[in-house]
Design a binder for these strands. Structure first.
Length: 216
DNA sequence: ACATGATCATTG
DNA sequence: CAATGATCATGT
């Protein structure tokens, strides 16, 4: 649709141009129609923003802005706070065992453009807020690393069934499947390969609220 | 099945 | 009403 942004500043300028616009306005410029059924259009806002900002990755396992190493995340905002957690990536149910420094969560979160979007009202009338380019602070990184190491250790021990969303202060594991029948490979406690429900890493809404707070 | 994009629906 | 567990769409 559009060329990829050629610098952080270029990307930020494009994002700023969207600030205050409604999704209906953006869709019209892109010659797209706004979905009639929000229930069946869960990823539409993120995809619209990708197109509007010149993201390139599509659904390939790459950063949205490959040349800049930047990931795009839209955040639904209600009453001034993120209403939902943020999906990061799927979890290997046998664990990665590579350490925080080399894990997929850290790579995903190295540099993120957060774009707040109103979470209430009709899709057409929701407004885009001021975007923010973020990388984890040392404190953020320490919290994320501690949670990830704990969760990955449990996965490697074959204790994935004990993992509930309550674990993790800022990073959690939750179901991530097409439906209740989806399965993936996992280890059990005796180290045997079994099928289990897929899980994904998510950032808690309380964490994204804190990292977006400097927006105020 | 798993990557991309997330929000929905039920529970406590 | 927030948090947890479940689900929806699309492309490879």
């Amino acid at each position: 649709m559009f060329d990829a942004p050629d610098s952080d500043a270029d990307l930020l300028a494009r994002a700023q141009a969207l600030t205050g616009r409604t999704l209906g306005e953006i869709a019209r410029v892109l010659d797209q129609s706004v979905p009639a059924d929000p229930l069946r259009s869960k990823g539409w806002i993120g995809e619209l923003l990708e197109t509007a900002l010149g993201a390139s990755a599509g659904n390939l396992p790459q950063p949205d802005f490959l040349a800049l190493g930047i990931e795009l995340k839209s955040v639904p905002i209600a009453r001034g706070r993120p209403r939902e957690s943020t999906f990061v990536c799927s979890a290997a149910l046998a664990g990665e065992g590579v350490g925080w420094a080399a894990c997929r969560v850290r790579h995903k979160l190295a540099k993120v453009l957060w774009v707040p979007v109103e979470a209430e009202g009709s899709l057409t009338d929701r407004r885009v807020g001021a975007a923010r380019l973020w990388s984890p602070s040392l404190d953020d990184e320490a919290l994320l690393a501690a949670d990830w190491e704990e969760l990955d250790a449990l996965l490697r021990l074959g204790q994935h069934w004990e993992i509930e969303a309550r674990r993790g202060r800022v990073l959690q594991l939750r179901p991530k499947g097409a439906d209740g029948r989806a399965t993936t490979w996992a280890l059990d406690e005796s180290g045997e390969w079994i099928r289990a429900k897929p899980l994904g890493y998510y950032l808690r809404a309380s964490f994204t609220a804190r990292i977006l707070e400097p927006l105020q």
